[in-house]
Amino acid sequence: MNLFRLFGDMSHLASILILVHKIQTTRSCRGISFKTQALYVTVFVSRYLDLFYDWVSLYNFFMKVFFISSSCYILYLMKMKFRPTNDPSIDTFRIEYLLGPCAILALIFHYKFTVTEVLWSFSIFLESVAILPQLFMLQRTGEAETITTHYLAALGAYRAFYIPNWIYRYWTEDIVDPIAVTSGIVQTALYLDFFYVYFTKVLQGQKFELPA
C-alpha cells in the first residue's frame, strides 16, 4: 500500500458517501444514472468473488464488502425508496454496447483462463466504461447539481490516483498489471472533459453547465 493508492481508495469511498448523502438529503436521485449504478454493482460483484477464497488484508476485506453493499444500497434507494425521482427516460445509454465488448475482451485478455480470473478481467474492463451512461445523461441534460459533480469528481480522482500508484509500484516492486493499467488510463481519460468543466466552473463557484 502506498499513499497514491490510499488516496485513490479514500476518494472512491468519499464518492460513494457523497452520492448517498446527495440522495438522502435531497430525497431525490435526479441526475443520477441508474444504469451506471447497476454497472458498478456488476463490477464489484464480479471482481470481489475472491472474498470467498482469498484473504488479502482486513483493509482489503472491509473495502470490498463496503463497495458491494453500498452499491447495492444505492440501487435500492433509486429503485425503491426514491423511485419516483428516478427518470429512466433520460437514462438512455445502451449498456449492451458496453457489456458485450467487455465480455469479449475479458475472454481474450486475462491472466488465467478460469471463471474467476475472466470475471476479474471483465470487471476491470467494465469499470473503465461504467461511467458512460452517467456522462451521456449529463451531456443530454447539459447541467448537473453541484453535489452530483462533486460525486463525479471524487470518482474520477479515484482512478487518476491509481496511475501514479502503478508507476510507483513499477519502480519499487517491479510489478506491472497491463490489464488494470490500460483500462485505468482509459477510465481516467473519459473524465477529462468533465474535469475541465469542473475545474473551470464548479470550483469557481459557478453552476455545472455545458455550452449549448
Partner: peptide
C-alpha cells in the same frame, strides 16, 4: 506464483 496470482488492489 506470479504477482497477480491474487489481486491486491481494489
Amino acid at each position: 506464483d506470479g504477482p497477480y496470482e491474487h489481486h491486491d488492489e481494489l
